[in-house]
Amino acid sequence: MGTNANRADAAVGFPDLSRVPPVDEVGVNERVARFQSRSIKKASKVEALKCILSMIDLTTLEGQDTPGKVRQLCQKAIHLHDAMPGLPHVAAVCVYPNMVAVAKEALRGTDINIASVATAFPSGMSSLDLKLDDTRMAVEAGASEIDMVISRGAFLAGEYRYVFDEIVAVKEACGDAHLKVILETGELRTLDRVRRASELAMHAGADFIKTSTGKIQPAATMQVTLVMLQAIRDFFASTGRMVGMKPAGGISNAKLAIHYLVMLKETLGNAWMTPEWFRFGASSLANDVLMQLEKQATGVYQSADYFSKD
């Protein structure tokens, strides 16, 4: 049995892919429908909404990003909705490597994490050396979390060892920073491949596995997230090491996020119900959650005009 103690030594060797169980899509859809039929009301809804806020990686990943935009995002991360006291702050802000320094400056004095995408995000179409440099640059600039992309082309071509080795190398380049491995499930297409890629990533040392870059549709779905959660559960059962989960992209309203929490609770149990082990990669989710919280407090349906965009 492995332990959870040493993250740097997280790789447990190339997985036996012949033992990866198949996944039945229709069965997954049916299970997801059961999560969605859960009715979350009143106190448990408020608790869920706050939990969701604390799990958000507030994200801006655009070619048009500027220091100004990133500073605004960081302000939002710190001051989600000051009109409502007692709110948690988000888990992290997520930016491109060249914006990490700006974010670090803007978030000084808070314990909000800085996550940076790296490894030729979002396509990953570059050399390993450049990807490692990209990673080191982000870490050196102050990122404590690195969101890498796997080489989907190599994965689809069956070059699983290449994909595995690349993750191991990036993990090493991360040093003390946590590594989130993006599978880009929208390009893997099948749940069987999602399961297989999850195994590769976890065995190669991923601290988190993440669905999507947000640049490819479909991004996160409950179906792929369920399959990844089940992979995490089985990895935990066989190694004793917890791996975190981050669905990203497409989760823009509170109701859907609550269904993700239901799925998380019923698949992995209470231990994962914290920002340490579960994140939402999202840009517009926070405000919808805030509107729902306000509605729960006042009983009045809310307008977006009363909640700051950045």
């Binding site: 039945d24 899509e25 229709v26 069965g27 859809n29 297409r189 099948t190 749940l191």
Partner: peptide
């Protein structure tokens, strides 16, 4: 009567 899911 036999049932089987249709999926990928």
């Amino acid at each position: 009567t036999t049932w089987h899911p249709i999926g990928v």
